[in-house]
C-alpha cells in the first residue's frame, strides 16, 4: 500500500520554543489513522502544518507526492479537513455554506452537493440557518464540507466531540464506508480513547511534540497484560502470600491480580487447597486508556 501522507522530520519552532520535534510517520491508503496524545502534545499544531495553516520550520510534509510547502494548491486539493470545531458561517444556511466551499474547488456539481448532503443525513435541515443547528448537525455539515471535492485524505480533529452515542456511531460508520468503498485515508485525532479503539486501524502516540510509538490497534492492546478479579470469601492468612507472591491488590470482596491466562487455574487450585471460598473469577480487560496512560507516563 502506498503512502498518502508522509511527514518527514517535521519540526515547528514558535518564538524559540520547539513545539514539534522531528515528527516522522506516514499514513497508508485506505486506513484510519489515529492521532493520540495528551492535551498540549502538539496534535493540533501538527494538523495545522499538514493543511498548510502553519509554516513548517524544518522537514517536509508530502501529500500524494506533492509537498505542502512547495506545491500548496496541488497538495491541499487532496485534503478535506476539519480543524478543531467545524466553524461555519452562522448567518448562512447549511446549503449556502456548502456552496461557499464548492465555489473554491473546480468541478463540483449541484448533483455532487446533493449526494454529500444525503450521505451525512442533513437533507431535511440543509436549508436552515446554521445558527439553528445543534452541535451534532454542525459536525455533519463539517464532514459534508470535507467530502465535496472527493479528497484522498480526510483529517478530522475530534470528530465525535459533542455528539451523542448514536451520532458517534454514525460518524464511525461513515468513516468505515469512506475508507472501504472509496479508498480514502482518514486521520482522526481524539482524546476519547475508547472511540479510537473502535475506529482506527493504527494509532500514533505523541507527547511533548515527539512521536512515542506507531502501532496497530491490536498490537497496542495485546501488549497489555490482563488483570483478573477474584471474588472470594474471607481470605484469612492467604492474604499475606497473595500479596507477596502474586502481587495481588486487595479489594472489598476478594482481590485482583495481574497474571497471564495460563496462571489462572494454578491460582484457583491453590486457593481451593487452602480452603478459601471462591465465588467467581472475572477477566478485567485493560482498555486502550490504561495502555495509553502506561505509555505516556513512562
Amino acid at each position: 500500500m502506498s503512502a498518502v501522507l508522509t511527514l518527514d522530520h517535521v519540526k515547528k519552532v514558535i518564538g524559540g520554543k520547539t513545539i514539534i520535534n522531528g515528527l516522522s510517520f506516514s499514513v497508508r491508503e485506505g486506513e484510519v489513522f489515529g492521532f493520540l496524545g495528551p492535551n498540549g502534545a502538539g496534535k493540533t499544531t501538527t494538523i495545522r502544518m499538514i493543511v498548510g495553516l502553519m509554516d513548517i520550520s524544518e522537514g517536509d510534509i508530502v501529500i500524494c507526492g506533492k509537498s505542502i510547502k512547495n506545491d500548496f494548491t496541488g497538495a491541499i486539493k487532496e485534503i478535506g479537513a476539519i480543524v478543531e470545531n467545524p466553524e461555519m458561517y452562522k448567518f448562512l444556511t447549511g446549503y449556502q455554506n456548502l456552496l461557499q466551499y464548492a465555489r473554491m474547488h473546480d468541478g463540483i456539481t449541484k448533483e455532487k452537493i446533493r449526494e454529500v448532503i444525503e450521505l451525512v443525513g442533513l437533507t431535511d435541515r440543509i436549508h436552515d440557518k446554521v445558527k439553528k443547528y445543534s452541535l451534532g448537525m454542525r459536525q455533519r455539515l463539517g464532514l459534508a464540507q470535507c467530502l465535496l471535492h472527493d479528497p484522498k485524505l480526510l483529517i478530522l480533529d475530534e470528530p465525535t466531540n459533542g455528539l451523542d452515542p448514536a451520532g458517534i456511531r454514525e460518524i464511525r460508520d461513515h468513516l468505515r464506508m469512506l475508507t472501504r468503498e472509496r479508498g480514502m485515508s482518514v486521520i482522526v485525532s481524539s482524546h476519547l480513547l475508547s472511540e479510537m479503539e473502535l475506529m482506527c486501524d493504527r494509532i500514533a502516540i505523541i507527547q511533548n511534540g515527539e512521536l512515542i510509538d506507531v502501532q496497530t490497534i491490536n498490537e497496542f492492546t495485546e501488549q497489555a497484560t490482563a488483570a483478573f478479579a477474584f471474588e472470594t470469601g474471607s481470605l484469612g492468612d492467604a492474604a499475606t502470600w497473595l500479596k507477596s507472591d502474586w502481587n495481588a491488590l486487595m479489594m472489598e470482596e476478594g482481590f485482583s491480580v495481574e497474571i497471564t491466562r495460563e496462571q489462572v487455574p494454578v491460582l484457583i487450585k491453590k486457593l481451593t487447597a487452602e480452603g478459601i471460598d471462591l465465588y467467581g473469577v472475572k477477566a478485567v480487560a485493560k482498555t486502550l486508556e490504561d495502555r495509553f496512560l502506561e505509555v505516556t507516563t513512562k
Binding site: 498548510g52 495553516l53 491541499i76 479537513a81 480543524v83 478543531e84 466553524e87 452562522k90 474547488h105
Partner: peptide, 11 residues
Amino acid sequence: WGTVKLLLIRP
C-alpha cells in the same frame, strides 16, 4: 468566527 481555517485550506 473561526471560519478562516476552512477558508484557507482550499486550493
